[in-house]
Design a protein around this nucleic acid. Structure first.
Lengths: 319, 319
DNA sequence: ACGGTCTGATTAAACGATTAATCAACCCGG
DNA sequence: CCGGGTTGATTAATCGTTTAATCAGACCGT
């Protein structure tokens, strides 16, 4: 079908070893021959066989990405960041969805390894353990998770949100979290309650009270741990006739694609996804090359002030 | 490291060929030996080397998935559907993002092939051509695209939307589309205008007029070609003080995860993503196995009636 | 007892790259 | 003019699996 290393060798009257050396820059090949081989190689449209290379070297150049339920608003952007970073490193990204139980997560991890992934990036389901696999694993999670993890500074993000709301004049703020069993969520809530002593409402305990009831309790702002909570809430408040941010301020987390598009724009906390992707893949590469382990890193976050909390929103810098 | 076929062969005093045959069920091996080999294989935790198998058979069992800009609300759900379908077929999914130019799309396709994908699934960027690659490609697009494509019945979906709005008593409806250069979008608009002669507003011509202006022009319903347009619009209308669906009805397309969560819920058209994934991967498998080409298929869609258009929404069937 | 068919296994050759080991020239100093 | 070092290439093994070709017996009817 397509050109193999052997075809090039025969076409140029040299051995396959020489071609391999010329293309990889290893071994000893004269400069003249090296360039002649290289031009001939791309004249023939040569592309090395990934399976042959993987078989010989033991490295496929593919990393596996396991994501929890697709509903997580962070997913597409993170996948994009991982894929972009992998691309710059010449790696491919195999995806797997761990929806369902934590056994499904284990199965997904196992499947990726059996499919030849050199290493894995895992965004874990709430409260799951990483089983021992034969390959390096980077976990994208909260700092409170001791494992081999890259983490955004969720605590700082929570503090940013509350500081901002207080600067906007709010004194009675309701913190709303999705689930107690998620490290990410508890860290965000911890940052919020560290900035000010506010009540916390967990949605796995009870649904949120109606807009009227919230106002009756004196709340003027609601700080959520996720855009997935905040965006529906924003519409619910508006549907009940409230004006944002006048009657109620709302904040989210994660800067979902829709957060900038709704009206008013949703104030939220954005993670530096490039840094996360870079940190994760960098650590995996170090492990694969048996380099000394890189120190754990906490990736910074930044607050995006939008119309849901302030009449003087930030100027958005696209990208 | 891990067990190889050769280890099993030596452990049982047989040849590697016999082990291979026993595990694959091909060739001739006595039933007794077959089961003994199989139990020994999983006792040793044997997993075949994907690269060795790929090298020998010429098939990696991996298909590439190329997606356009991540902002497309259909992306995560479609990726999930493709991944799930691939899993049932024992295949992996390599992802690539074609964000940016159509050259970036070509580069992404090429990269996946060089990374060993047996076949590709492409969700094309607006108005791009598929370059000739060495592997089968399934394109997920509109019926109006003549290529080797799987398509949802976007035209029928458009008709469903308009019929529903008229049944709800609307006579003056504004159709809003994102981009003329997208087959999917034009098909949806075509279905809408076929059901009733309505004005069409393209967002790449001009931004949408303010809510007041729309009402002043007598519109009581806005039918968009995407939840990506409809969800922001829904909040914009509410922020302007309108009540939905009383003051204005809004519809989207694609059943984005948020569409069911906002208040009121967004009436939208859902594609049968499982059928699309099944159609795409099935056609690719047929091509790879040199089976006769499967006939082109149009995947059905269904209307989800929610609070943004009606006070009697459908009962949602989760999943 | 003998050719013919089956059964159940083995042998060995691929697939396409990488790489350690080897080898043939050539250069150069003493 | 000889031995040591360098350069530039080749040889051949190897990664782990699949599979066509081969082979040794067993079985069977005549």
């Amino acid at each position: 079908m397509t050109a193999r290393i052997n075809d090039i060798a025969r076409a140029m009257g040299v051995s396959t070893a020489t071609v391999s050396n010329a293309l990889s820059g290893k071994g000893r090949v004269s400069e003249a021959l090296k360039t002649r081989i290289r031009t001939e190689a791309d004249r023939m449209g040569y592309a090395p066989s990934p399976s042959a290379r993987a078989l010989r070297t033991g490295r496929s150049g593919v990393i596996g990405l396991v994501l929890p339920d697709i509903a997580n608003p962070l997913f597409p952007a993170l996948a994009q960041a991982i894929e972009a970073e992998a691309q710059t490193r010449g790696q491919g990204v195999l995806i797997a969805d761990s929806r369902g139980t934590s056994e499904a997560q284990d199965a997904a991890l196992d499947r990726l390894v059996r499919q030849g992934a050199d290493a894995l990036v895992l965004v874990p389901r709430r409260g799951t353990q990483v089983p021992p696999l034969g390959v390096p694993v980077a976990v994208i999670d909260a700092a409170s998770n001791p494992a081999n993890s890259i983490c955004a500074d969720h605590v700082a993000g929570g503090r940013l949100v509350i500081d901002h709301l207080r600067a906007e004049g709010h004194s009675r703020i309701l913190v709303v979290g999705q689930s107690r069993s998620s490290h990410v969520q508890t860290d965000r809530v911890a940052g919020m309650t560290a900035a000010a002593d506010t009540p916390v409402h967990w949605l796995d305990d009870a649904p949120l009270p109606a807009p009227d009831a919230l106002r009756a309790q004196g709340f003027t702002a609601i700080a959520t741990t996720s855009d997935l909570i905040a965006l529906p809430l924003l519409t619910r408040l508006q549907a009940a006739g409230l004006r944002l941010p006048r009657d109620m301020a709302v904040t989210g987390f994660d800067n979902h694609a829709f957060s900038a598009l709704v009206a008013p724009g949703l104030t939220t906390v954005a993670q530096d996804l490039r840094a996360i992707a870079n940190g994760a893949l960098g650590r995996l590469a170090a492990q694969l090359d048996h380099h000394p382990a890189l120190p754990p890193v906490t990736v910074p976050v930044r607050l995006l002030r939008r119309g849901s909390t302030t009449t003087h929103p930030d100027k958005e810098t696209p990208g």
